[in-house]
């Protein structure tokens, strides 16, 4: 039986997540792995929005911020369980994305980039300035999710690092599965179609503005859940999660790996998350490297690493 690209991608992903720990020299690597998965989840949302629908957002970290602070604030102020706070953050992000996206996605080109950038910065401005609620730039503690204790009682004892590694891994697999479902569905096909030609998409009955809005809302939910997982895992969060640089990181990861494919996005997230861990000297150069990667990939490797390699491989086969 021939594997469809969808099941092949999911199978490889599951295998990598399950087998990688065999090679971990220390517990620290579980943490790094979890970080890769969290970033990859947000980037998967960018793949849907930018890769398929052809829209660019420079403020998606704002939604990650909403997801993160929902988990920090809702349990303390309203007594909502952290797990439900994840959903609350996602819902809030979706509503905000809908409100912001509705008027803007009717327009073309640069407008979404600028409007989303403004939205992201407004969110991080609020997180920085409303000290009474968020404690400002110094950050705030986040309650324990509590699931690990439940698992332990059920006889599955995991270290904190292992628990978050597998939980974030599962979240990524689910996120990638949903994105791949979307890709070959009516909605996903319509998104890719309007990316190719908006006017033709309209003539076959596609409501272009509505479709773009759907992509924007879906990708906002991905970013929000990613932010929530980051906050719950670190038990601490600062407004940096909503910052401009984080938005740019998401876009860079996506275009580096290949913004048109889920596998590419995940690969890009892995590379840009691991690189600073391997080369700690790079910390000083983070912005320099990020900027250079964005420019160079767009000029020399427009499709990103993974699709370019696949294309080369296919050509060799033929």
């Amino acid at each position: 039986m021939r594997l469809t690209p969808k099941s092949a991608t999911l199978l490889i992903l599951v295998a990598l997540i399950a087998l990688a720990p065999v090679f971990f020299p220390s517990g620290f690597y579980y943490r790094v792995g979890a970080l890769v998965f969290v970033n990859a989840l947000a980037v998967t949302g960018i793949v849907i929005l930018t890769g398929w629908a052809g829209q660019i957002s420079l403020g998606h970290a704002g939604f990650a911020g909403i997801g993160a602070y929902a988990c920090a604030l809702a349990p303390v102020h309203w007594g909502i369980h952290p797990a439900l706070s994840v959903l609350l953050g996602a819902a809030a992000s979706a509503v905000l994305a809908w409100l912001v996206g509705r008027p803007i996605l009717r327009l073309k080109g640069y407008y979404l980039a600028v409007a989303s950038l403004g939205m992201g910065i407004l969110i991080s401005m609020v997180l920085n300035n409303e000290r009474a609620l968020t404690r400002g730039p110094d950050g705030i503690g986040v309650p324990e999710l509590g699931l690990r204790a439940v698992l332990k009682d059920a006889g599955l004892g995991l270290s904190n690092g292992q628990f978050w590694y597998f939980l974030c891994g599962i979240a990524l697999v689910v996120g990638a599965w949903a994105a791949l479902n979307l890709r070959d569905s009516a909605t996903g096909r319509a998104l890719r179609a309007l990316h190719g030609s908006e006017v033709a998409a309209r003539t076959v009955g596609m409501d272009v503005a509505r479709l773009k809005l759907q992509a924007f809302v879906i990708s906002a939910v991905y970013a929000s859940v990613s932010g929530s997982l980051l906050a719950l895992q670190n038990r601490f969060i600062t407004p940096d999660v909503a910052g401009f640089l984080h938005s740019v990181e998401m876009v860079t990861m996506a275009v580096l790996g290949g913004v048109g494919s889920v596998a590419g996005g995940i690969f890009g997230a892995a590379v840009l998350t691991l690189l600073p861990q391997v080369l700690t000297v790079l910390a000083e150069y983070e912005q320099l490297v990020l900027g250079a990667v964005m420019v160079l990939v767009m000029i020399f490797l427009r499709e990103g690493i993974v699709p370019s390699m696949l294309r080369k491989g296919r050509r060799r086969e033929e």
Partner: peptide, 20 residues
């Protein structure tokens, strides 16, 4: 105005959007 990066089949399926 063809959807260049999609397959030929996908282009035509796109025409079924309203039903699909």
């Amino acid at each position: 105005q063809v959807f260049q990066t999609m397959t030929v089949l996908e282009n035509v399926i796109a025409g079924f959007h309203l039903q699909e």
